[in-house]
Design a protein around this nucleic acid. Structure first.
Lengths: 118, 118
DNA sequence: TTGACATATTCCCATATAAGCATGTAATTT
DNA sequence: AAATTACATGCTTATATGGGAATATGTCAA
């Protein structure tokens, strides 16, 4: 089997760095395609294709107005990723605590036997 | 250009659902490869390859002991993804509030003009 | 040493990109 | 109607994938 399609879910869609930039850019407020092209300095067809992927997985919403299409990030579609990564929060906290403990132990060891290199 | 390598960063590595399962399974405590194979019911070469990808991007750590290799999730490597998704938290909260407001408005409209279909 | 066990690596293949470029389509203006 | 603007789509190409099967590597045990 090949790699899963970029359009199969939010995780795959967001793996592409340019799509993450687009999502960040469109989070605050909606923008027409041309502004995305100008702001992120990408080719217009490239932006259209990225937006197509993001649309298919529900990460952006479109509003048509004349010949402009205003895209905006649908933040709710990112929430499941946030929840998944949150699973690991307690573990990296534990890891940080242990790193801190080891650092503090080194300091107290240095007080016992200071400056071993001199 | 083709799609970025799965080994290019955590976002790409985690796009594969099986790798996410492996990370969840290895978050709590380290496990030898054989247990991953048994628990997730995957082929052993497949697990080894997935672990290789996860190792390259620092999402798992290995401890060798005889002929066993104990893998464990390196939760700290997931934190950047958590931070990136957090950017959007305030926006989905706003969206939920507006959904709630519209729902409440519908209820009060119904009180004004109840049961329009009867 | 030989064999059993645990894990990694290699080869093949169907599939899916993303970029670049050209072209198509729809709405607007002149 | 013709020209212009704003996007979308189609094409080609280099590249990477994940699964399956076979095989290699490394470690322990008898």
């Amino acid at each position: 089997m090949a790699r899963a399609a970029t359009t199969s879910d939010a995780f795959n869609a967001v793996a592409e760095p340019r799509r993450r930039e687009i999502l960040s850019y469109l989070a605050m407020r909606e923008r027409p395609v041309g502004e995305i092209v100008a702001a992120l300095r990408l080719d217009q067809p490239s932006v259209s294709k990225h937006l197509g992927v993001l649309r298919k997985v529900g990460l952006v919403r479109v509003r048509c107005e004349g010949r402009h299409k205003f895209y905006q990030t649908n933040a709710a579609a990112i929430q499941p990723m946030h929840e998944w990564t949150r699973e690991f929060e307690k573990f990296w906290q534990h890891q940080l605590i242990r790193v801190k403990e080891r650092a503090e132990k080194r300091v107290s060891d240095d007080r016992q036997k200071p400056n071993p290199h001199s």
